[in-house]
Design a protein around this nucleic acid. Sequence first.
DNA 1: CAGCGGATATTCT
DNA 2: GAATATCCGCTGA
Length: 216
Amino acid sequence: MTDEPARVLLPRDFFDRPVVDVAPDLLGRTLVRHTPDGPIELRLTEVEAYDGESDPGSHAYRGRTARNATMFGPPGHAYVYFIYGMWFSINLVCGPEGKASAVLLRAGEILTGTSLAAGRRPKARSTNELAKGPARLAAALDIDRSLDGTDVCTTGATPISILHGTPAPRDRVRNGPRTGVGGDGADHPWRYWIDGDPTVSPYRPHTPRRRTATAT
DNA sequence: CAGCGGATATTCT
DNA sequence: GAATATCCGCTGA
């Protein structure tokens, strides 16, 4: 007799909904990353929604490319991309096939496999920092482009799956502008997080990056 | 915590 | 060439 949350996979239907419905519903759920050295479990505390059809902030807004092809595929799969020349981020594809919407996983609390995650994040100074931010989350869970397209809803062997976990109470969920999104995409308050959770990343407004080192 | 600059793949111009 | 769904190391509170 325990308060152990049900260890049940989220069904594919969970992801086959409008992305703004799926995103807040993911908070509190458990992501399981099966590595060769053992499992790492993460409780999701912060996410952002991206809708390819209406959203200038979405990678898919300007159509399909080699990088974003997975976003156009069936729901319940991982879209992993490489950004800023050195980091990976993981999204979960939502909506029907062809719609190109996805939820960016921005932060979470490491539940098990903490030493494995810490080994991937040697610079982190506290356990709360291990997955505080999308690139940090991917690094802690050893996620890279080789996992792009992974089915997270299969009952078979898979490197990543999403368990039902314990959904965050709706009165603890907050939403606001997305971190680092500029232009017209800044209008959508599609960042969702669990209020007061110590693993949520600080909000950073969009700041256009300075020029690359000037060629001499 | 806030602010700053640097590192760099992918995409569009 | 320029922008982008970022993080790190530094400085200062």
